[in-house]
């Protein structure tokens, strides 16, 4: 019993560390959904694209780490802006299902380009920012993971401040009343571009920070499709697709739930983590489809 207890605490620790990646992905999904009503299936692919950018700059071209990191983010943001300009904007009158297929198409395009450039490189490794780790009784967090958590905290605070600033309030106004916003001089189009840019930046941060945790290759979509997209979306669902703080909390919870699949109890079950996530998603959608972490003000 005590082993189970210890395993649960370990799952919580690792889950929070891993979940901070999901939280960042979820923040981007929630931002875009609030602004444009789009389920963005390309959100995690902003991350892989940024990661491939950073990898190319650092490992292939031999640039410095910080510069490469920045370059990766720029690549991710450019992809976000292109998505808005080439897909979302032309389809603004289409049904939401069409838009969803459109973002899935963007994700696939990104995967396709990654294949094209790197199908011969079987295994890629993005170095960590710092190689240190901390041996504890409950798992051994790496510096990289701790930095990720710190970045998540910083990003969350920055976003909260931004949306309380006059600019942020104007953006929220533009989302709720586009016509009225146009009348008082807010350019709804640039707001939309800005939102997609921020979302892509969040995705890019998540991708580059998570990249060093595993090896990756163009043929194995460790981050994009299966890895972070689904947990990120689940976190966003927990946030009722609307709440920013809910997205952060949701990411951490999903990280924990996923780690439950690593319990010794489930050692004989293949794909226990996928099962935990699927069952958890069903339970949430069946019993609390409006989300768990939704502040009152948002639900009203």
């Amino acid at each position: 019993m005590s082993t189970l207890g210890q395993e649960l605490i370990t799952a919580a620790v690792i889950g929070v560390l891993q979940g901070s990646i999901y939280a960042m992905v979820a923040l981007g999904i929630v931002l875009v959904y609030r602004a444009t009503g789009v389920f963005n299936f390309a959100q995690a692919e902003f991350g892989t694209t940024a990661l491939f950018g950073a990898y190319t700059a650092h490992v292939v071209w031999g640039w410095g780490y910080a510069v490469s990191f920045g370059f990766g983010l720029v690549v991710g943001v450019v992809m976000g802006l292109l998505t808005e300009a080439l897909v979302i904007h032309p389809l603004r009158k289409a049904s939401r299902v069409t838009l969803l297929v459109g973002t899935a198409g963007v994700a696939l395009t990104a995967i396709g380009l990654q294949f094209w450039k790197y199908n011969e490189t079987l295994i890629m490794v993005m170095p960590r920012i710092s190689d240190g780790f901390h041996q504890t009784k409950y798992g051994s967090p790496t510096d990289q993971q701790l930095i990720t958590v710190a970045v998540l905290v910083a990003v969350t605070i920055a976003l909260a401040l931004f949306f309380r600033s006059p600019w942020g309030l104007a953006i929220q106004a533009a989302q709720q009343e586009p016509v009225a916003a146009e009348l008082v001089g807010i350019n709804v189009r640039s707001v939309s571009l800005l939102i997609w840019g921020i979302a892509a930046l969040l995705g890019g941060l998540a991708g580059i920070l998570a990249g060093p945790n595993t090896t990756f290759s163009a043929a194995f979509l460790s981050f994009g499709a299966g890895g972070a997209l689904l947990p990120g979306f689940m976190a966003a669902v927990l946030a009722g697709m609307r709440s920013m703080s809910g997205a952060v909390a949701g990411g951490l919870v999903v990280g924990f739930v996923e780690q439950l699949g690593n319990l010794t109890l489930l050692v004989d079950v293949n794909g226990a983590r996928a099962m935990m996530l699927f069952v958890f998603l069903l339970l949430v959608l069946l019993f609390k489809p409006s989300g768990l972490f939704v502040p009152r003000a948002v639900t009203a």
Partner: peptide
Amino acid sequence: RVTGLYFALVTLAYGAFAEQTVFGIE
């Protein structure tokens, strides 16, 4: 119970679950 876009999410999770869990039953 969950239509539209949420359903797409369920199928996404279902696909991963089937591939890794169900088809993994040796």
